[in-house]
Design a protein around this nucleic acid. Structure first.
Length: 236
DNA sequence: AAACCGCACAACCGCGGGTGG
DNA sequence: CCCACCCGCGGTTGTGCGGTT
């Protein structure tokens, strides 16, 4: 009954990765590609479970990762996407090249969530909180610097319909997904979105994509990179 | 200077979906 | 068609660091 643990817990190291482990994993993936994670630790000589290796690679070692805090445009995009997708972090991450689902999830929980609440917006429903602070009405659509970065959801200007790029991103991100089950999709809950789902962020995103496209030629986005690596290692 | 607190990030855990035998 | 396995996702927890009191 039940499912076997992803790895036998005996002899499997946990906790923070050392530089040596990182090096082993990185070298291995570079040589053989990120395939068959279950086998990776054995082959790479790591006392880790495959899951841990995969996580370490995707969240930290991948060469196409951006580091550092999300900028305003990215934050805005996360909010927009979250309004549409809910907690589908991997799908949201798909719209932000170089960012991982874990990173976005962390940023959301520690940062954006609080910002939205402060602005009187429910981070779950993206609707105004039940008990608005007296200043919330002004906050909601305010132009004060702190809230300007986040779209107050009081303006009927959600970008999806107007912004081909985000629409495309969503289509890509959501392709073949069950996102359509997301009950609030298209409901009026999400018709009122802020004016800051800005062209700025979209332009920046476009730049990301362009940039990534360029990099594909060298290292590749994760997808291409993976393919390259898989190609390198697979037929050994 | 020390203690405390909050934040940011990294990592783990359990579950569900997809797939092959 | 069923079962077992593997992978990926989302939620949660742990830890280190910086700022404040």
């Amino acid at each position: 009954m039940g499912r076997q643990p992803c790895c036998d817990k005996l002899g499997v190291k946990k906790g923070p990765w050392t530089a040596e482990e990182d090096n082993k994993l990185f070298t291995f993936i570079l040589s053989y590609g990120p395939c068959c994670w279950r086998a990776v630790p054995k082959l790479a000589g790591l006392r880790r479970c495959g899951k841990s290796c995969r996580l370490r690679w995707t969240n930290y070692l991948r060469p196409d990762l951006k580091r550092g805090l999300l900028d305003e445009a990215e934050e805005q995009l996360v909010i927009d996407l979250h309004a549409r997708l809910g907690n589908r972090w991997s799908k949201i991450a798909a719209g932000l090249p170089g960012r991982t689902d874990n990173e976005i999830k962390n940023h959301w929980n520690t940062h954006i969530k609080k910002k939205l609440i402060k602005m009187g917006i429910d981070p779950v429903t993206h609707q105004p909180l039940q008990k608005p602070q007296t200043e919330s009405s002004s906050q909601g659509s305010s132009t004060d610097s702190s809230s300007a970065a986040i779209s107050p959801l009081s303006e009927p200007n959600f970008p999806a319909k107007d912004q081909p790029l985000t629409s495309q991103i969503w289509m890509e991100a959501l392709q073949d997904d069950s996102w359509s089950n997301f009950s609030t999709w298209g409901s009026e809950s999400y018709t009122d979105f802020g004016p800051h789902s800005s062209e700025d962020s979209l332009n920046q995103l476009l730049d990301y994509y362009k940039d990534l496209g360029d990099k594909d030629c060298e290292l590749g986005s994760s997808g291409n990179f993976n393919k390259q690596l898989a190609g390198m290692g697979e037929k050994d």
